[in-house]
Computed example of a mutant assay.
Amino acid sequence: MKSTDSAYYQNVPRPIGAMSKAYASASVVPMHRHVRGQLIYAVSGVMEVISSDYLWLVPPQRAVWMPPGVEHRMRARGDVSLRTLYIHPDVFPEDFSSFPRTVQVSGLLRELILCAADIPVDYDVDGRDGRLMALLLEEIQWSPEQPLRLPSPRDQRLTRICEAILANPGDDHGLEGWGKIVGASSRTLARLFQAELGVSFRCWRQQARILAALPRLAAGEPVTAIAADLGYETPGAFASMFRRLTGAKPSQYFPH
């Protein structure tokens, strides 16, 4: 049986070391970093990944690339079956490997990740296992980047607002209402959202709501209940926004 200790894979004598590990709901992996780059993929369930700059939720259709040396922490949203690839820093070109990103997981990439987890760490580079690993590296680089992530603020006023929305995504306060709570004008807050997060308040909240929907969809909750809780007037309005941000209908994203 292969190790479930991530430290073991940092110095394996091959370009890729693949680890399988299960996490119970609400399990937390504290802030840490790796010598190798890390592709984080949840075969089932949803894993939350947080760095100093962004928050990602990783459902089975997506994976997160975390470059070497970037601090991050993780939390399981429900029971999660995770596959993690630890990839040598010299494998990918710098323009790909230097920045965290979300990549789309095709059917082929998913199967390659699952195969990699069963391949010995000292696989034959020139044999079948080596060819599978080489194809896996190609597929990761060719996978389209997905913009489904939330930028994290540094301003304390924005932090209060964003943390409150993450705790209650259905909150319908506008910037004027939030301004009264945090002691800033709506104009100041609008400027800070654009300056620090690169998006408007409305756009950030929409992304937060869609991300909040993912673990609930994964658990099989009805779309009507999720839409109502997240502040959408109709399930259709929620489905339209979900499709705009993810490229799929809610019913297609987590088929049950």
Rank of each mutant, 00 (worst) to 15 (best):
P13H: 01
M66V: 15
F92R: 00
A190D: 12
L211M: 14
M47C: 04
G177D: 11
Y41H: 13
A218G: 08
S6V: 11
S20E: 14
S25M: 02
R243F: 08
G179C: 08
F254Y: 15
G127A: 13
R128E: 10
Y23N: 11
D171E: 14
L109D: 00
F254N: 10
S27C: 06
A213K: 01
D155P: 04
L136W: 03
S27T: 15
Y41V: 09
Q141G: 12
P60Q: 02
T246F: 12
Y253H: 15
A7D: 12
L109P: 07
G17D: 09
M66I: 15
D79W: 06
I16D: 01
A219D: 11
M19A: 11
V29M: 07
R149G: 04
R202T: 14
T188W: 10
Y54E: 07
H256V: 09
D53F: 04
R36H: 09
I50C: 04
W178H: 04
V125K: 09
R83Q: 08
Y232T: 13
D118P: 00
H173Y: 15
R216I: 01
H173W: 14
I226W: 01
H256K: 14
R243H: 11
R216M: 06
G69P: 09
G107N: 13
Q252P: 03
E138M: 11
W204Q: 11
S3G: 10
F201C: 02
V28R: 09
V28G: 00
T234A: 09
R110N: 09
D53H: 11
A239Q: 11
L175S: 02
L158P: 07
R216H: 10
L217I: 07
R160H: 09
F238S: 09
E145W: 04
C203P: 00
T224Q: 13
A24G: 13
L211P: 01
V80F: 04
M19P: 09
V182N: 05
Y8S: 06
M66P: 03
L114Y: 06
D129S: 08
D53I: 00
V28H: 10
L197A: 02
P68L: 05
V199M: 12
Q104L: 15
D122C: 00
I181R: 14
G179I: 09
A218M: 02
S185V: 02
